[in-house]
Nucleic acid binder design. Structure first.
Lengths: 228, 228
DNA sequence: CTCATAAGATGACTATTAGTCAGTATATGA
DNA sequence: TCATATACTGACTAATAGTCATCTTATGAG
């Protein structure tokens, strides 16, 4: 018996219920959970989160409604998990845009981050809508604090890239800002505000300009304002 | 008989149902409508628009539920009328801040407008929440296009003050912006984004700064960016 | 193979609430 | 006084989130 085999057995032995069956059961349980989440993604994104019903989600996942509630506490919890997916996707795109190992200037990095967010807005409108729709007290009260913490952590991590870019700008003496964290909040609030405002066709018509031009306008003013 | 008296009588005569009673009836109808709207204001603002029920509103207005629906098509229509109240209040404050007859500079005017919006955010949090909460497709689909038009008109009028301030800045050669309408959209999107972002206690904690400082940060950067 | 047990799944049921409408009450003026 | 019109009522329907007693299936001991 090799050491690794011994350790594996030891691991199994720790839990009296351990058996080849258990591993399969756990896998199947995760698969079912994923199937329900996938159904939720389709149903909520297709019909909008208010029109869509848990019965619909159950039907799409080919399980009874009760089963949905075995895997997720509530409709809001389901939505929260979709939100986490969206935040993860955005986080990855921001990390890629920051491009840690490339010798970009701080300004280039901020432009790339802003551009990545605009791409996300345009390519993943469902996730973006979800992020905005769930950014409300009503929703937050309906999910566990643990889940809420996870969402907040993901959000902070996303903003972290902006903080780092601004830090770089301060270090390189390109930017003049009092506090990089505040400045990151300002920058993000502004470009996010542009996207929220332009999410409505009527608003776009009203302002007679495209999402891109308003978004770029906000970004350029913010950059100009931060530069030395 | 003066001309005005003649015209008044002529107006009444146009409608064969005219009578002293009719005027009273109409007044009473408006009073009831106001009572229901007042009840809605209390109930929705007290409990939050999702938790509050139309039964609650009816109970507070001391009418049957059916009566509420005689005066307002739906829960959303009730909310839309509260929203109009809020937009009117904000519009008045912006007009006052603009101070047409005072010799303020464009920059002073923009600062005053932004300051008025911050005041509104802080003094009328219920109306502000309503404005943000109802800024969604789901809500817009549920009200008449006429009502929706009214809301949009109020919004445009509000932004109009910002456009005028920026126009002044361009005329006075203080600002360098390509298009004042776009620039107004940019400015408003940015400061509004700051308020939305900071509406959440968790977000404020995350960014470790006050609403005021982030808001001011956004405004100063936007002003700096617009200045020649 | 058989059967007791546990784990997992089910869907009928409850509770809540927006919106309806047949019936009732009140006011008007002929 | 009474027919009519107007205003109001609240029991009812429909939709839907969430529950839980019951059933089904898989497991492994004998």
């Amino acid at each position: 018996m090799t050491i690794s085999q011994y350790m594996t057995n030891s691991h199994k032995a720790r839990n009296p219920k351990a058996s080849p069956t258990k591993a399969r059961r756990e896998r199947e349980s995760l698969e079912r959970r994923d199937a329900i989440l996938a159904a939720a993604r389709n149903v909520f994104f297709e019909n909008g989160i208010h029109r869509a019903t848990v019965d619909d989600v159950a039907a799409h996942a080919e399980v009874a409604k009760g089963t949905v509630y075995l895997y997720f506490e509530s409709k809001e919890t389901l939505l929260a998990h979709l939100l986490l997916e969206g935040l993860d996707a955005l986080g990855e795109q921001l990390a890629e845009a920051f491009a840690e190992n490339h010798p970009f200037t701080a300004e280039q990095r901020l432009r790339r981050l802003a551009s990545a967010y605009l791409d996300f807005f345009e390519n993943e409108p469902d996730y973006f809508r979800l992020m905005m729709a769930l950014d409300r007290g009503q929703f937050q009260e309906a999910i566990s604090t643990e889940l809420h913490q996870q969402i907040m952590t993901r959000s902070i991590n996303g903003l972290g890239w902006v903080v780092r870019a601004i830090d770089q700008g301060v270090t390189d003496s390109d930017f003049a800002v009092a506090d990089s964290k505040s400045a990151a909040g300002v920058f993000w609030a502004a470009i996010n505000g542009a996207l929220v405002l332009m999410s409505h066709p009527i608003r776009r018509e009203m302002l007679q300009q495209s999402v891109e031009s308003l978004y770029t306008g906000v970004m350029e003013l913010m950059l100009k304002g931060m530069k030395k």
